[in-house]
Design a protein around this nucleic acid. Sequence first.
DNA 1: CTGAAAGCGCTAACAA
DNA 2: TTGTTAGCGCTTTCAG
Lengths: 351, 351
Amino acid sequence: MTEIPPRPTLEAVAARAGVSRATVSRVVNGGEGVRRPLVEKVRRAVEELGYVPNQAARSLVTRRHDAIAVVIAEPEVRVFADPFFGLQLRGISKELTARDCQLVLLLTEGRADHARVGRYLSGGHVDGALVFSLHLDDPLPELVRRAGMPTVFGGRPGWGEGTRSAVYVDSDNRGGAREAVRHLVGLGRRRIAHITGALDQTSAVDRLDGFRDVMVDVAPGLIAEGDFTPAGGERAMRLLLERHPDLDAVFAANDLTASGALRVLRAQGRRVPEDVAVVGFDDMLTVAEQTDPPLTTVRQDIEEMGRLMARLLLRHLDGRGGGPDGDGAPGVGGGPTSVVLPTTLVRRASA
Amino acid sequence: MTEIPPRPTLEAVAARAGVSRATVSRVVNGGEGVRRPLVEKVRRAVEELGYVPNQAARSLVTRRHDAIAVVIAEPEVRVFADPFFGLQLRGISKELTARDCQLVLLLTEGRADHARVGRYLSGGHVDGALVFSLHLDDPLPELVRRAGMPTVFGGRPGWGEGTRSAVYVDSDNRGGAREAVRHLVGLGRRRIAHITGALDQTSAVDRLDGFRDVMVDVAPGLIAEGDFTPAGGERAMRLLLERHPDLDAVFAANDLTASGALRVLRAQGRRVPEDVAVVGFDDMLTVAEQTDPPLTTVRQDIEEMGRLMARLLLRHLDGRGGGPDGDGAPGVGGGPTSVVLPTTLVRRASA
DNA sequence: CTGAAAGCGCTAACAA
DNA sequence: TTGTTAGCGCTTTCAG
């Protein structure tokens, strides 16, 4: 059995460099106010011993962790089949990395996990949280509020407790939807259908509202409920064609949904866009550029949303001394405030 | 300004319950060897004060963190456009959650980040690491070895230093590839082409080897290099059709690649599977079931791979007292050993 | 500019 | 069974 080589401590480095622990600490933390020759000596000792600070000890006194939690509610398989979260995570990760802050990922699989997440957030592991609050009745917003944890939400949270003052980053779902539908109208389409997303998510509701803003007197039969998946898009498209064989356009709540709809349209011999024009939402390149025909869609910069969330949270954290306190909502007291990013229509071949 | 309400400590709970800190600690950690009435009293005090243990303080003395790192090298955009990692993460998360262990996600964007990751792993944040070593020359294996961090790899790592004794979980890429190609042969196909994955990843190399095992004397022109993306599949497919217009089957290194190939085949008027049979790899449902025609493919249980990685690591961690020591490789000394999971051929319409 | 000393909140021997 | 006592490794006043 190999012996356990004990990690060198500050003490050891201090001894080796012939200085006090305090001096080593100063050097390790930037070296402000330490004379050059000493800095050199300490640096060398650190190097030789392979010293790495113990974060637990450091956090214990500083009450900082340089880590933030990303909480993703994952009630459905969809979450990871969809590149959406991956892109968002990527944006977050980039921003955090630049600040030497770690990303702790908390995936929750339904109610049972909420207690665990609550415990974790209150346990003093992280300085803040980024929460993707997928569902309208999600208890997560209330939970982070109680934990007193500075939090930024991804997407406008539902209308639960503690949501009112919540800080979030979202796309202009409603405005984007309006633009999509207006584009279809501009193309001369009149019988425009909508396949919604999962209606327990605000993004789906907002896009539906945007659709209605333009199609004020739409026949109820022209709206079919989907769930943001290709399969949902197929089902809804079939239903729509049954109810309104004369429809001439479809606005789908996201690109995945649109891809399902396209398949059904083709299978039923409708030409796109000649017979039926189709517009999606997201501009997820792996989907929108790969469909046949390529998809006209509403672009939202998903990675940028992630970056922005991280940036907002970090800025708030900077504005306060140390760890979590009672004032969990970064929106309160002149802190950061929610951001709604604009969307743009990307024209391809489907409309 | 709201006053910062200081978190209650063990001390506070002890005072309130009229016992010593030690007793509270015992109760909080399971309550072994504490008489009932006291347990009750302490529990009540904990409840009333809303006490939550400070993990930094705990880790400082126990040298456990109940957290493991998942390191994903992400040199390309591909990583998150591909549901692969999401599924794997999901499996890992499930297993860790069941053990009240947290998942710290480290995304690395190229060389610059390696130092950061190394520092993190040596910094005493986590008890072990799960590493996805995507590329043959990846420095990550050597890095975790030096950090003395118990590690399990996702996919057979390349042949760098410290890889020899590495523990990993992988699919039987070579065997799966053989099965795919034999299936095509069994269908009477003779001019079978292969679109490889990114050849700096062992999975791509292994699948190519499997292809060669069956097609011993294959014309070099029937092998085209891809990169696991649909776009790569398209490029490779076009090249193959140019070089060998008479090919009658294609084995693609993964489903995404196959989907690209299918598009090119259709665009060029080849019927699938009548003119050209196509087999993929992965059985990624969101891809394989959505292609036209649905894809015959080699199934690997990706989520299970993730679970298994986590299980292997946790088992190893259990077998040792506390934190990381010098013996980083779980494979050494009767610990867990690598696992290669079997694959199965899933027949759909494309071959 | 540097060192000495006092904890951060918790667990784990050891005593009682 | 319970309490007392030392620290875990680090930062941070406060003297010098």
